[in-house]
Structure formats: C-alpha cells, structure tokens
Design a protein around this nucleic acid. Sequence first.
RNA 1: GGUCUCGUGGCCGAGCGGCUAGGCAACGGUCUGCAAAACCGUGUACAGCGGUUCGAAUCCGCUCGAGACCUCCA
Length: 486
Amino acid sequence: MNELIIYNSLSGKKEVFEPITDGFVGLYVCGPTVYNFVHLGNCRTFISFDMVFRYLQHLGYKVRYVRNITDAGHLENDAEEGEDKIAKKARLEQLEPMEIVQKYTVDFHETLAKFNNRPPSIEPTATGHILEQIDMVQKILKKGLAYEVNGSVYFDVEKYDNEALYGELSGRKIEELKAGSRELDGQDEKRSPLDFALWKNAKPGHIMKWQSPWGLGFPGWHLECSAMSTKYLGDQFDIHGGGMDLKFPHHECEIAQGHAATGVKPVRYWMHANMLTLNGKKMSKSTGNTLLPNELFSGENDVLDKAFHPIVVRFFMMQAHYRSTLDFSSEALIAAEKGFHRLMDAVSLLPDLKTGKTSSWDIDDWIKQCYQAMNDDFNTPILIAHLFDAAKFIQSVNMNQATLTEEDKSKLIEKINAFVFDVLGLKLIEESQGDELSTVMELVLELRQKARENKDWTTSDAIRDKLNEAGILVKDGAEGASWSKE
RNA sequence: GGUCUCGUGGCCGAGCGGCUAGGCAACGGUCUGCAAAACCGUGUACAGCGGUUCGAAUCCGCUCGAGACCUCCA
C-alpha cells in the first residue's frame, strides 16, 4: 500500500505523512467559540476533520484528537474597547456567561452527533486552562519576546520576526503587513499594530476575569490553543487543523507563540478546511449569511426547498474535497440525496448476494484504488466514485449479470463497511416510522398482490399511485413488492 | 489597495502535461401487465486570448469574472 500524503499549508505542498512517534498521531483542531448556535459552515470543518480522524484510526494509528471549546469570550475586535462576545450574549439573553457557554456547548455536541461525528479524545476548555496560559505568557516574557503595559501583555511580533520568521504560514511579510495595517488608536498600548495580546487587563465591569501576575485580566485571542495543544500533545505535534479563515492571524500567532515559548515550531503538518458557501458567499455569523443545522433538518428555512437528513448532508460534503469551497443549494443536495440512497441500497444488498466459482471483477484492484484515493490527501470524492463502481457491480451480481466468489464477497463486505461507515462516517438512515406503519403496509401490499394476481390492474395501480402521493414508494421486485418512504 | 485561491458538459464536483472520474438530470435500450427501481448504452466540458511543448483543462503570460484573508468568525 502506498503512503499517506497530506497537503501541508505550511509548505503549500503535498508531503508524505510521517508521525513524530511511529504508530501515534497528535491531532489538534480549533473548536468553536460557544456564544451562539453552530452553523453549517462551522460543521463542515468539524466533519472534514472527523473524516481525517476516522481515516487515521482506520489506518491503525492511535490518534489523540484534541479540540478545544472556547468559553472565555474574546473581544469583539482588536480595539481597546471591545466587548467580550460571551458577556455580550449573556447580557442580551439575560443569562450568566457560563449559562451561555453551557447552552451552546450542548448544542454543539448534539449537532455534531447528528452528523455522526466521533467525539474528540480530549475537549479542553479555555477557562479550565488559565494557569497553563499564564505559564506560557511568562515563558514568552522570559524570552524577551513580549512586553507588559498596564496589566496587559503583548507579543512582540517584530522582535520575533528578527529571530524566526513571522508570516510563513499565511505567506505574509511583516513589511507588507505594516504597510497595510490601519492607524493605531491614540491610546493603543501596543508598540506595533502587528503585536497581539497574550493577556489583557480587565476593565471595570468586565465579567470573565482571572487573577494573574499582571493583575486581574483574561487571556488573549490566540493563546488558549497554544497552551492546550502543548499541554496535551507536547511542544511539537503532528497535525493542526482548522478552518481556512483561521489561517491568519490565528494560526500564524499560534506558531509564533508556541515557537517563542518552547523553542520549537509547534506543528509539523497544518491542514486547512475550506469554506462552505451559501449563495456563493462564505457562511458567516457576522454577516448573517448562515444556515443552522436544525433549520436544514426541519426544512424550516428560506434557502432550500425541503428538509435534509444530517447524514445526507454529510455525504454531500464528502462528495467535495475538504480543501475546495462547497456551495449549498437545493439542487446539489437533492442530487446528493438520490446518489446516497442508491449507494446505501447497494451496501444493504451486499450481504445477501449469491456467490459463485469466479469473480467477474477485480476486488483487490478496487481496494487498492480506494486506498490510493484516500492516501492522496484524503480525496473522498474519488473514494466515493469508486464506491459507486462497487455499487454498480453489486447490483449486477444481484441481477445475475456478474459473479462473485465467497472470498471476494467477504473482502468486499469488509472494505465497503470500512470505507462507508468507519471512514466516511455514513450510516443507514433508519425508516423510523415504527412497526405500526410497517404492519399496515404489509397488509396493503398483500391486498395489492391479490389484485395483481387477478390482473385487476386498476386496483393495484390505484393503490400504488395513492401511496405515491402520500410519499410512499412501491417497488415491484422479483421477490415481491417492497416500499420505502420518499 | 495588498496577499492568495478559483473559474470544468444542464447542475454539483474530481482530475492538474498524453490514459472513461463520479453523482444528479436528459435521451435510447433490457426487464416489467404498465410504471418505479436496477442494469446496459449515449455527451467530444474544461472563462477568453496568446505562449511553452510532439502533445495542455492541466505549465507560463495577459484579460475578464467570482471568492477568501488583511477586524471576531470553521
């Protein structure tokens, strides 16, 4: 089998993946700030990395997957007088800040569970790691790469840039950044507009604050990820993921902080998932161009024509590469939904296939191609194309137009299940209408069969058409009729 | 304005120097009482204009168009 190749945002190239410790992978992904419901764009990133997590596990790696919950509300903007996002929401909803955090953390977990995401190995919170963050600030201060002003501590970007290289991830040069940055506010404490806060002094009235060597305050924008990834994965770890929009400045600052504090660059492979768009534009909380998962599942929204099952949405996302933007539309989702059902029908059919003395298809070659697709930077769309080839073959065997040996059948079952369920994280959508409907349908189809035997086509067609109108699809197969809900 | 992506057949979406991507839709066929489903077959698509090359959707340049980042956002 060929090697796993990952596109590393740091080098801008595909690189062979070599973990620091054989057989183990440290994976860190930036989690959400829990001050609002997660929208589908947020979900896409977490679903993408869930797939990465799953595939690494499938390959046999022991993966420690750390994803933070940002529950310390960072400021709304970089200016001196920003308002804490969680505190602001708490004021608007008349709740304690930690009630806000709890409410949206629960929503986040529930939503990702619907998408069949596996929970991360560790899900640390920012407020639970204030000491680690303070510790990291002190380390950076000791190295002389940060300075304190009025109870706040700022990272000295220019000084760091002299020794290391600031901007290597985002391809930015410090001179260009300086030229492009706005005028400083008159009372800004920062020496340079590029500097960023490691620790902020809490103004009177600021709710979420902690005691520190520099007085009462709260951690800076980017610090928590560095502190927590270092604590749980070490000074240097294998993969750091996140949304494309976090590349600059968030991840750039993480590199600078981590490097400054520990002396080594924190991450070997940087992975960035691309944006989910709606009407061709990035989904974004601040612009309101969003769709919430529950609006999608219920169909209660102005954007799409109907409701969609979370697993169908997951499949839709897997049909695009994680590094490409993906646009959300009814048409595209309906197409994905139909394809999904065709694939799952074949998967369900597989265990019942008859076997013979020969196989008319090269299963081993197919398996090889599936791994090749995934090993090439997690190319799920190509994997899915191969899965459809298999679906076609399964149907052919079912119709006695192709053959399959017992041995190949078990191989096929093993790998189809591995790729469809373990790696892509799909699952069969249960027709959960309960036994009542099933009993009724059994009776109806029985009556219809009687009519058909009597060649009473008027009655049998009427039953089928009426059921169809009610959203129940009747399919006449060789072994009798079956039904499914639309 | 700066930095960087992307523009593929009716729609979605891979590919990224030569070899059928795939899904949905459409059309023809097999099957069926008729349908549906399933299966078989059918598309000479790569924004435009130049260039490099034996050969370009794929590399280079320009033009047009879309988007992301440069302020919190996955």
